[in-house]
Design a protein around this nucleic acid. Sequence first.
DNA 1: CGGCATACCTGCAAGC
DNA 2: TGCTTGCAGGTATGCC
Length: 327
Amino acid sequence: MPELPEVETVRRGLAPAMEGAAIETVEVRDRRLRWPIAGDFEKRLRGQTVEGLGRRAKYLLMDLSSGDVLVMHLGMSGSFRIQQPGHSGMRAKRADPESINANRDYGFRARGQQAASRNDERNDKPGHFYHDHGKLAAHDHVVFGLSNGATVIFNDPRRFGSMKIVPRARLDDEPLLRGIGPEPLGNAFDAALLAKACAGKATSLKAALLDQRVVAGLGNIYVCEALFRARLSPKRRASTIATRGGEPTGKARALADAIKAVLNDAIKAGGSSLRDHRRADGSLGDFQHNFLVYDREGRPCPGGCKGTVRRFTQNGRSTFWCPSCQK
DNA sequence: CGGCATACCTGCAAGC
DNA sequence: TGCTTGCAGGTATGCC
């Protein structure tokens, strides 16, 4: 699912619910993510206050009062949702967006109702919120119960996502993050930096932009979209947008501008919802309606050039483009 | 080292 | 209807 705009949307959705709250309970229901969740995971999180929620490339970084950072990746199918006290965790069907909040129940357990898990028992008394573990769905792998009553749930059908705890002081040495290129929405990113990263690269522009060492956070959708906006061919050698010294050409400027614009537009729309990506509050992102070429094979070129959007496989993944105006 | 294929995993749609 | 096939938003790993 998620590229930079979707991860940023998730971050913005989770931050208000998590920052300043303590993690009271951690339930790992399936440790088999991309790598097994470490054995001390729960112990290192329990009791910690969430000091901040950041993002680097497609990673979410949860800063904890212990000095640890929880480094999380959504893989292809990961998502978070928040259950607030007083709301059920039922998710609306896509065809029925109005029902998102329709299925309420009480955040206080009715008398005689069984606690759903041992984690609930400590809060299972009148006047205390319980963490609503009773509404968990398939592929809900990690459940955080917060001191403010909210429950934050990580769901990931394909289990390509990951969670790893790293001491903040060693974040710079973390292999998952080390070597990642510039943040495309950061101040440092510009045509010169992009040109330098592409200089000398024999591979295609498409492959170069997918390489997280060149630019952070782009994936298949936004690479296709940025290349279209810049009218550059995905097949072009990456080195051809820089001069020999790594100096930017006009093409590098166009591409850097296109990358920033498409990411900003997508974040503004709350990301793209292809299969079931949602914001953490359950609402859908809208940007998929603004795709110009991605998943639009056979349609007329949206640039009005009389060409047709085509699709071909490049490095094992679908590329969508307009061969008549992307050069 | 750079560039490329492969592997990991589930769900869904299309085709037979 | 039910089966098979291919494809999906990512990235670490291993091979040349």
